[in-house]
Write a protein that binds this DNA or RNA. Structure first.
Length: 859
RNA sequence: GGAUGCUUAGCUCAGCGGGAGAGCAUCGCCCUUACAAGGCGGGGGUCGUAGGUUCGAAACCUACAGCAUCCACCA
């Protein structure tokens, strides 16, 4: 027997370990159809946050649901080494100990990083257990493990041989703090207030002056020209002449190019090929030298002369001061412009010329675009996110994949010590002759292989044959570029298949005020705290049911409380059922012939619910599925049937049939909610008579058409409406709810035995069935049946009430008549709607007639 | 500059072609042995604005406004 109160903490304690031990999450039953999914691997940077819960709970619900539906489910767990992010954390930790990674050297540093991974990997495992992920630990992978590393090497070498990976000198985004290159999408642009410096450039051999504006004066040491638009009347005559660079006095040619925007700044632009991508393109066009003036930590090099060794901002300040002194500063403007920041370190990214490895994106992206036009495309839920993918795929530039870090997959490129020639190879060459490239790969390079590399690729494995492509992927819209797109193109290129059939996109979780959770705001919510307060089941329920696919949601304590109350409700309903069944009850199948009208009603409602919930589950619409279930549990079962069953139980001959019904309904409810809230549902399930070892050994409830009866539902609804009407009547008239009344049902009983229910729930001393002619009573019309309350009534009140009712009915009838006399409606509305409206009108007319008669009787 | 989403009850949000819904809050009545973390009964909305399509629009289309987010550019 269940305790009186649902205590989530006690309920959740210890269950997970048992499930894992029993092997409930282990895949491999070949008699079943396979269903597979991979976890979005959390970074080993630290503890899990609510975002991970968002990522993994829908997966878990899907996995548990599909298992109950009879699939052989493989859910692959794993973690991501998260190159930059983890390295930054480890470096920070070292910094607190007063050491830098350079003090340690590569090997020792990597040892520290692996220690870090071991520690946080353990924490993540504990948290998976806490949130109840039904992953198959036999299949756990790590992006840096041997298998994944082999896959990475295979992919790199193949792409290189195909000419899809190349090494090149280009302007890349440089993070001067972490001292590594970044890809374009690792740069976060934000509007910063800066200064726009207008400098005076003197034209050689003339008194003329040219004013050029820049936001980054420190790069002027690397300038090679000044550009103007040849259509610009102001400057056209200057093209071909030279100006003095106010930073170092060197002569710069004035060039004309239509790239220059006449209306921006002064219409004259300096060209710094090694520190600006657009200038780089211009320089290539005109064959200018590429002059770097910054080192890898963004300090000035020798070309800056007296400013050498200064940090870029220090130099900027000092240089401007110097130019001002020399009379070459025209003015300074405040200027808000978008500045790139490193996603990881937050520092301002410096565009810089650098030799890096790139993936040539066009051919790979084209393949994705072609695939998405075919019938075997990756389906996005919601659909619109497919556009996010295709737009990105059609515009993205080559992907810079090398990182000047140590934590990651080292690039399998080797340089001949003598000739410097590059050898790209999966296996290590003779290291007496070669040295390996120092750099590692972007962390997303390996996560892009996740769905197939975790299944054993490039080896031919049974897992790969059986479980690939995976069935579904759940992730947030924020990593469609980073992750989803890359998995798709890598998978298409290397396996000729899409990596997953469907992608379910969820939104981000925000704080109560709708703000992004962030460290700087200090508004992050630790799932562990939430679990300690409400239990994981409530959190799981909240996170998957209070959101719409693809839209952000707000964290809400209230909603968690409400989720917990809901679970408490089910808990207590189950408790009541168990009390009613009694000790030693042996579950019996439903005997359809023995069912009473209300049992038929609730079982039919249950079938309807199963049908609808299953349909929503199949579409991964958890909010919709749980909503349908919620209404059934609260309204149909708890508020109505459960109460009615108490009356049924009063008769000995009903006992068996009612018990069987109660048992069936509560058990199905438990099974239907189980994927959402496995811990508490397991607890309830185990307390039910005839329970197996675990709820996980049960099947998902199947729709049974033979129990689905609209007629039975109408009978139940009629009783429900009658009860509601009389209760409302009492409340409105300030009559105590339990004040005894007499009821007359006119003209006759709608179904056998209804009087007992009416009597019990309306505290009726008497329920009679007879044709009522008199209007001297309060009454309610339910179409073919009326119900009257025999009581001393105030005639004025009665009249007022009847008139109110009359007015309402007149409106309804006129609405119906209008609709049904509209030729357009008659001609075009579907037949179902037409019939429904006709029936409704008929009922309302009957009601109206009844009310009119009674009003007439009063006068 | 381009794209997407949002705007519905006091608050947070569902609904997305056939009579406005939920949770919380609010008001009234109930400690009725499943549940007071509860029950029963109420009140509260011209569904952002303006046009259009349709027999019928909160829902579809077009503009506009406000709020978000993403991408691109920014000398």
């Amino acid at each position: 027997m269940l305790d009186k109160h649902y205590d989530p903490i006690a309920v959740e304690e210890g269950k997970y370990a048992g499930w894992v031990e029993k092997g409930y999450f282990t895949c491999g039953d070949k008699t079943k159809q396979p269903f597979s999914l991979v976890i979005p691997p959390p970074n080993v940077t630290g503890k899990l946050h609510l975002g991970h819960v968002m990522d993994t709970i829908p997966d878990d619900i899907i996995a548990r649901y599909k298992r109950m539906k009879g699939y052989d489910v493989l859910w692959v767990p794993g973690m991501d080494h998260a190159g930059i992010a983890t390295q930054a954390k480890v470096e920070e930790k070292l910094r607190l100990e007063g050491i830098s990674r350079y003090d340690l050297g590569r090997e020792k540093f990597l040892e520290k990083a692996w220690e870090w991974k071991a520690e946080y990997g353990k924490t993540i495992h504990e948290q998976w257990a806490k949130i109840g992920l039904s992953v198959d630990y036999n299949h756990e992978r790590f992006t840096l493990d041997d298998g994944l590393s082999a896959a990475v090497r295979r992919v790199f070498v193949t792409l290189y041989n195909e000419g899809l990976i190349y090494q090149g000198e280009r302007i890349i985004n440089w993070d001067p703090e972490l001292r590594t290159a970044l890809s374009n999408i690792e740069v976060v642009h934000q509007d910063d207030e800066g200064e726009f410096f207008y400098f005076i450039y003197e034209v050689e051999g003339s008194d003329e002056k040219l004013i050029v504006a820049t936001t980054r004066p420190e790069t002027m040491f690397g300038d090679t020209a000044v550009f103007v638009n040849p259509k610009d009347e102001r400057y056209r005559h200057l093209i071909g002449k030279k100006v003095y660079n106010p930073a170092n006095g060197e002569l710069l040619p004035i060039m004309g190019d239509s790239y220059v925007d006449i209306s921006f700044g002064t219409g004259a632009m300096k060209c710094t090929p090694a520190h600006d991508p657009n200038d780089f393109a211009l320089a290539k066009k005109y064959g200018f030298p590429l002059i770097k003036v910054l080192d890898e930590s963004a300090h000035m090099n020798e070309l800056a002369g007296e400013f050498k060794g200064m940090d870029r901002y220090e130099c900027r300040k000092a240089l401007v001061e110097k130019i001002k002194k020399e009379g070459h500063l025209d003015h300074i403007e405040k200027f808000v412009h978008s500045v790139g920041h490193s996603e990881r370190s937050g520092c301002v990214v410096e565009p810089m010329l650098s030799k890096q490895w790139f993936v040539k994106m066009r051919p790979l992206a084209e393949r994705v675009l072609a695939q998405q036009k075919s019938s075997e495309k990756v389906e996005f839920l919601p659909k619109r996110f497919e556009k996010v993918l295709t737009r990105w795929m059609s515009t993205c530039e080559d992907w810079c994949i090398s990182r000047q870090l140590w934590w990651g997959h080292r690039i399998p490129a080797y340089y001949n010590k003598e000739t410097g020639e590059v050898l790209v190879s999966e296996t290590e060459p003779d290291m007496n002759l070669y040295v390996q490239d120092e750099d590692v790969l972007d962390t997303w390079f390996s996560s892009g292989l996740w769905p197939f590399a975790t299944l054993g690729w490039p080896e031919k494995t049974e897992d790969f044959d059986r479980y690939f492509p995976t069935s579904v992927l759940v992730t947030g819209y924020d990593i469609i570029f980073f992750w989803v797109s890359r998995m798709i193109f890598q998978s298409l290129h290397f396996t000729d298949r899409i990596p997953f059939q469907k992608v379910v996109i969820h939104g981000l979780i925000r704080d109560e005020h709708g703000r992004k959770m962030s460290k700087s705001l200090g508004n992050g919510i630790d799932p562990i705290d939430v679990i300690a307060k409400y239990g994981i089941d409530a959190l799981r329920y909240f996170i998957t049911t209070n959101s719409t696919p693809g839209l952000d949601m707000r964290y809400s304590d209230e909603k968690l409380q409400s989720a917990q109350n809901y679970l408490n409700k089910i808990w207590n309903a189950a408790r009541y059922v168990e009390m009613t069944l009694g000790e030693g009850y042996v579950p019996e199948p439903i005997d359809k012939k023995a069912l009473g009208p209300l049992e038929k009603y609730i079982l039919s409602r249950l079938q309807d619910t199963i049908k609808k919930v299953t349909a929503k589950m199949e579409q991964y619409q958890f909010g919709a599925a749980s909503g349908i279930l919620y209404d059934f549990v609260y309204d149909d079962f708890c508020s109505f049937y459960l109460e009615m069953s108490k009356v049924s139980m009063a008769k000995k001959e009903n006992e068996a049939m009612v018990k069987a019904t109660l048992y069936k309904v509560i058990k199905d409810i438990v099974l239907l909610i189980y994927p959402y809230c496995p811990f508490v549902m397991e607890e309830i399930y185990l307390s039910l008579p005839g329970a197996k070892e675990s709820v996980m050994l049960e099947s998902y409830p199947e729709y049974d058409a033979s129990l689905h009866s609209p007629a039975a539902e109408r009978n139940g609804k009629l009783l429900e409406e009658m009860i509601k009407a009389v209760r409302g009547f009492k409340a409105e008239r300030k009559i105590a709810p339990n004040a005894p009344v007499k009821l007359i049902v006119s003209p006759k009983s709608p179904w056998k035995g209804i009087e007992e229910y009416l009597a019990r729930f309306l505290f009726a001393k008497e329920v009679r069935f007879e044709k009522v002619e008199s209007a001297q009573m309060e009454g309610f019309s339910f179409g073919k049946v009326d119900i009257y309350i025999e009581e001393d009534v105030n005639e004025d009140e009665l009249r007022a009430n009847l008139e109110k009712e009359l007015e309402k009915l007149l409106f309804e009838v006129s609405r119906g008549e209008k609709m049904l006399s509209n030729p357009g409606f008659l001609a075009k509305a579907p037949k179902e709607k037409l019939d429904a409206e006709k029936a409704k009108l008929e009922t309302n007319k009957m009601r109206l007639e009844a009310v009119k008669q009674r009003l007439a009787g009063l006068k």
